Amino acid sequence: MSSAVLDPPAVPALVVGTVAHTRHRPVHHAFRYRAYQWLVDIDDLPAHRGWRRLVSGFSAADHLDGGRLGGGLRGDLQRFCARRGVPLAPDDQVLMLANARVLGYVFDPLTVFWVRTADGRLRTVVLEVHNTYGERHGYLLDLDEAGRGSMDKEFYVSPFNDTRGRYAVSLRLTPGRVVVGVGLEREGERVITAVTDGTPRPATPRAVARVVRRHLLMPQVVTLLIRLHGLRLWRRLPLHDRLTHPKEAVR
């Protein structure tokens, strides 16, 4: 457990900003787009009324073990962390940065769970990576005082990368800014850099309406962009066979 005190924004919040992705080698390819995510307390999820419920849905089925053994998101996260030697206390707060379901659909390339003790210290962080094949993988991450950590790559995300390499992670969670940076490094070289950078805003009904109008069908757009950029890389990069992924990686 880190001795750093975590000072997060008030939740629920809409984190509005950009997603930038750069492939450095063996070919260069970069893109950036405007986006938003939700920052929520998994024990106090948003409860909007009317049409806003259609664009702010959260379900344990979309994360980790899918709620298989009960207890919702928290139950799954508790079991995941305990199996890796980090038991959660009953009064720990868990903040989740994720996309919400929009018209019943969601895709989350990366979900971040911050576990915060009752006195505000960071107990641990869980990164959950999703691919477009309907699979997901959880990583338990230890951060230093500056919010940096690393972990071996264990999950097949795209046909343009195998599971070799190591991720360098940098996280920032403050009242004025939320940043998630992930870099894939292999044999001492940076292969990919992905950064989500946004400003948290209280998720009032008016704010939800405004953001949703500006970013129509956000999860659907994310999936479409991934596939379009994949097509652009299809003939420029070697392809790697997809590996079977064990479900134990999220349990």
Rank of each mutant, 00 (worst) to 15 (best):
V212W: 05
V212N: 01
R213Y: 08
R213G: 05
R213V: 11
R214T: 07
R214V: 07
R214Y: 06
R214W: 10
H215S: 03
L216Y: 12
L216V: 15
L216T: 13
L216Q: 09
L216G: 09
L216D: 06
L217S: 07
L217F: 15
L217D: 08
M218L: 14
M218Q: 14
M218F: 07
M218D: 01
M218T: 13
P219E: 06
P219M: 11
P219N: 05
P219C: 12
P219I: 12
P219V: 13
Q220R: 15
Q220D: 08
Q220T: 15
Q220E: 10
V221S: 10
V221C: 10
T223G: 13
T223E: 09
T223M: 15
T223Q: 12
T223N: 05
T223H: 13
T223S: 15
L224R: 15
L224H: 08
L224S: 13
L224T: 14
L225S: 02
I226C: 03
R227D: 04
R227S: 06
L228V: 14
L228G: 06
L228R: 15
L228S: 08
L228A: 14
H229A: 02
H229T: 03
H229L: 05
H229Y: 04
H229V: 03
G230N: 04
G230Q: 02
G230K: 03
G230L: 06
L231M: 10
L231K: 03
L231W: 06
L231N: 03
L231A: 10
R232H: 09
R232S: 11
R232G: 09
R232I: 06
R232D: 05
L233V: 00
W234Y: 07
W234R: 13
W234K: 03
W234E: 00
R235D: 04
R236L: 10
R236A: 10
R236M: 02
R236C: 02
L237P: 01
L237D: 00
L237N: 00
L237M: 13
L237A: 01
P238I: 07
P238A: 02
P238F: 03
L239P: 00
L239S: 08
H240Q: 04
H240G: 00
H240W: 05
D241V: 09
D241S: 12
D241N: 08
D241G: 15
D241K: 08
D241E: 14
D241M: 08
R242T: 02
R242C: 02
R242I: 01
R242P: 00
R242W: 02
L243Q: 09
L243T: 12
L243H: 06
T244Q: 12
T244L: 12
T244S: 14
T244Y: 08
T244D: 15
T244N: 09
H245G: 02
P246H: 06
P246W: 06
P246N: 08
P246Q: 05
K247N: 12
K247Y: 11
E248Y: 09
E248F: 09
A249V: 07
A249R: 09
V250R: 00
V250M: 02
V250H: 02
R251F: 13
R251G: 11
R251S: 11
R251K: 10
R251A: 12
R251E: 14
R251C: 08
